[in-house]
């Protein structure tokens, strides 16, 4: 049986103007144009979007899950970066 071996493309859909593109899944396609056509047929059959991005899956660089702690844990103890860390009397009103 002949293999197809079309590259994998990650698909991102903008739900409506004003929202950013969001990852929804992937498609296989021989080229970029076909990837857009396939993504349109697969991920926007019910008005889910107004714009599509397709990106060769091989082009995505991701952080290593093993680095999760060293990359993201330092943010956990920096409560002073959040507005609720600061005491403002109620009389001042909404701030």
């Amino acid at each position: 049986m002949s293999k197809v071996n079309w590259p994998l493309w990650e698909v991102f859909v903008r739900g409506k103007a004003g929202l950013s593109h969001k990852h929804v899944g992937s498609v296989h396609a021989a080229d970029a144009e076909m990837a857009i056509a396939n993504a349109r047929d697969l991920y926007t059959r019910r008005s889910e979007g107004v714009s599509l991005w397709v990106v060769p899956a091989s082009a995505i660089v991701a952080s290593d899950p093993a680095d999760k702690d060293s990359l993201f844990e330092p943010a956990d103890d920096k409560v002073y970066r959040h507005p609720t860390f600061y005491d403002i009397p109620d009389e001042v009103g909404h701030m």
Binding site: K3, V4, N5, L8, G25, S26, V27, H28, D41, L42, R45
Partner: peptide, 18 residues
């Protein structure tokens, strides 16, 4: 479409579509 969403999910585990 459902078949394709699911193949796509299986591929994230290292399975090949072919």
């Amino acid at each position: 479409g459902h078949g394709l969403y699911l193949y796509s999910a299986a591929e994230t585990l290292g399975a090949s579509r072919d």
